[in-house]
């Protein structure tokens, strides 16, 4: 039950993009077409789940026992950077189609603040190992949901008559604002 609440909360109520503002760069940058944004969402979910597991292990098994918590930021970012590199090589080796679908998005994920956010929040909230993995996974699902909805809207928006100075980023922000408003409706769910 507890795990389910974590899942619902990360996907809807505390959606990473729309209420915590993490991962805005890919959200604005890659949400032009439905296909690529779904791939980006999947790649992010994958890395997020892995990053949550690895950073939990590092924090509670290496940093905390040795009183090295001040190295939290440096070690998390290194873990994420090498993890992304590793995942990229791994996928390339085992599945060519998956690599072609996710490949170009993987390096971008290193600087996706949502991944770093997951690592920092799970320490902040003192989740245990299983909770952390669920948390990472559901944050990724939430990110995918937001970016896919956004891409769907933007595909329609191409046909709309947007004022000239609001084309591109500004209208995307305003649409995101409306989406965030809609997602606020989930607040009463938990």
């Amino acid at each position: 039950m507890e795990l389910f609440v974590i899942f619902l909360s990360a996907v809807f109520v505390n959606n990473y993009v729309l209420s915590k503002f993490l991962g805005i760069c890919p959200f604005v940058g890659v949400s032009k077409k439905l296909g690529p944004s779904l791939s980006m969402g999947m790649a992010t979910t994958f890395v997020m789940t892995m990053a949550a597991a690895v950073s939990w292990l590092i924090y509670y098994n290496i940093l905390l026992p040795n009183n090295l918590t001040f190295l939290k930021i440096v070690s998390f970012i290194l873990v994420i950077a090498s993890l992304v590199q590793f995942v990229e090589m791994f996928i390339k080796k085992i599945s060519k189609p998956l690599y072609n679908a996710l490949g170009i998005y993987l390096p971008l994920i290193t600087t996706n603040c949502a991944i770093m956010g997951v690592a920092l929040f799970l320490v902040d909230k003192q989740y245990n190992f299983v909770e952390s993995i669920i948390f990472g996974f559901s944050a990724g699902v939430g990110f995918t949901l937001a970016i896919v909805i956004m891409a769907g809207i933007r595909e329609k928006l191409e046909l709309a008559d947007v004022p000239e100075y609001f084309k591109g980023a500004p209208i995307t922000m305003i649409v995101a604002g409306c989406l965030a408003l809609a997602f606020m409706g989930f607040a009463g769910m938990i």
């Binding site: 729309l18 209420s19 503002f21 004022p163 100075y165 609001f166 980023a169 500004p170 209208i171 995307t172 922000m173 305003i174 995101a176 604002g177 409306c178 965030a180 408003l181 606020m184």
Partner: peptide, 25 residues
């Protein structure tokens, strides 16, 4: 209230970027 909640951030920034584009033009 909405302005200090998340949607307000998106709306205000969108309008600011739009205004910056307009001033630049």
């Amino acid at each position: 209230m909405i302005m200090i909640l998340p949607p307000g951030a998106f709306l205000t920034l969108g309008l600011m970027i739009g205004a910056a584009n307009w001033i630049n033009a």
